[in-house]
């Protein structure tokens, strides 16, 4: 289990890292926490000739608030997300989900930027980013651009990022006061990816749903946003029938890949179940 030989670079600035990406092109890979990339390199699914380590670049980690927006450095680790008081107060959905990612040791290293940039539909952050209407700051040779999550995930291991770009920051609008939240994830054991998972953000007035966002993990070639189900719920009283109708719409968009976690039918059924669980919990957590 040893990767193919490569040259290792540890740039001290973002500018140097971008220049190296330009110089080495397709031969290069960025290394963040290394907990998706190094396993792939050991299995020789990835064989970069140049590895560019982002860990020595200052100021790429940390959580801050700017106006009505939370800004998270791409190199912020899962444990830093879990321990952030700001996130616990303003984006509890992210904290709840990070606690369900991998295991303690992996969470000390794995970064939110790497989890998103990897483009794996089994990763948990992509669906969360869709649900939270996040956008990503990408730095390249021509400066920065900001791409919304809804335009970022194009296919399995395929994103809107150019090969010479580096994700530097994740921006998330703070949900309105009183928003209910839940990330429901079915996994076989600690450290396993989701068999199915659903993220829900919910606003209510009395019994009526005034706004809802639903994201799904590992149920298609990319993370999914369940827009049909959202449209069906918005403006409606959240009765058992309305929730069941939405669950059917959630399941209708699922195209999971069969694997050891289950076949397509099972995973789709579990998507419905995770959605029902997530919306009920979000309802309980809503202040109306």
């Amino acid at each position: 289990m040893i990767p193919k030989p490569f040259e290792y670079h540890s740039p001290q600035s973002l500018g140097d890292a971008v220049a190296m990406l330009q110089q080495y092109g397709d031969e290069a890979k960025l290394l963040a926490g290394g907990h998706s990339l190094l396993p792939m390199m050991k299995l020789r699914f990835a064989m970069p000739s140049h590895l560019i380590d982002l860990n020595r670049i200052p100021d790429l980690a940390g959580v801050s608030e700017s106006g009505n927006e939370i800004r998270i450095g791409a190199m912020t680790t899962e444990n830093q997300l879990i321990w952030s008081e700001l996130l616990q107060r303003k984006l509890p959905l992210l904290v709840e989900a990070a606690r369900l990612i991998a295991d303690p040791q992996v969470r000390y290293r794995g970064t939110i930027g790497g989890d998103i940039a990897h483009g794996d539909p089994g990763n948990d952050h992509p669906a969360l980013m869709l649900t939270l209407d996040a956008s990503f700051v990408l730095a390249g040779a021509n400066g920065e651009r900001v791409v919304p999550a809804s335009e970022f995930f194009l296919g399995t291991y395929y994103t809107a990022m150019n090969p010479d770009e580096i994700m530097t920051q994740i921006r998330i609008p703070v949900p309105p006061q009183g928003t209910g939240w839940c990330y429901a994830k079915l996994k076989r054991k600690t450290g396993d990816f989701a068999a199915a998972a659903a993220a829900v953000l919910l606003q209510m007035k009395g019994d009526t749903c005034t706004g809802v966002a639903i994201g799904l993990t590992n149920l298609g070639p990319t993370a999914l946003r369940a827009s049909d189900a959202e449209a069906a719920l918005t403006g409606q009283p959240l009765t058992a029938d309305a929730i069941e109708a939405a669950a059917q719409k959630v399941m209708a968009i699922c195209e999971p890949a069969a694997d050891l976690r289950g076949d397509e039918t099972y995973k789709t059924a579990m998507a419905g179940e995770m959605f029902r669980k997530a919306i009920r919990t979000a309802m309980e957590r809503c202040t109306r």
Binding site: G34, H35, P104
Partner: peptide, 8 residues
Amino acid sequence: SLKSCTIL
């Protein structure tokens, strides 16, 4: 804490 099989 880290897994020393997953760091260079």
